[in-house]
């Protein structure tokens, strides 16, 4: 699975940056069409949830999703034939 920020919901508060132990969320640079600067993702495949969510049947860590006041963070299935990146960092 892959980590995504829903650009229709994110309001750019950067709280996700504050909590992620892997520092996956980086301050964004460009405004989107709504004038909001959405955080950038730095190698999001490092998030343990991408790989372990299915395996464990529950959300692992999930701090960013819980603190996101606008319900903008989720994990999507990769499309068919989309290369899956799996990186484990300890």
């Amino acid at each position: 699975m892959k980590l995504v920020i829903d650009s229709d919901r994110c309001k750019g508060c950067n709280l996700c940056m504050l909590v992620c132990p892997y520092r996956i969320f980086k301050e964004g640079k460009d405004q989107n069409e709504r004038g909001i600067i959405i955080p950038e993702l730095d190698r999001p495949e490092r998030c343990p949830n991408c790989r372990l969510q299915r395996l464990y049947g529950r959300t692992v860590c999930g701090l960013c999703q819980m603190i996101c006041p606008d319900q903008a963070i989720r994990w999507d299935d990769e499309k068919e034939n989309e290369p899956q990146k799996v990186v484990i960092e300890f």
Binding site: D8, R9, G12, Q65, M66, I67, P69, D70
Partner: peptide, 18 residues
Amino acid sequence: RLPTIYCVGCGNGTVINC
């Protein structure tokens, strides 16, 4: 109904999540 009417970074959304 989403996104909420709350301001950027308002803590209320987090409390609803929890």
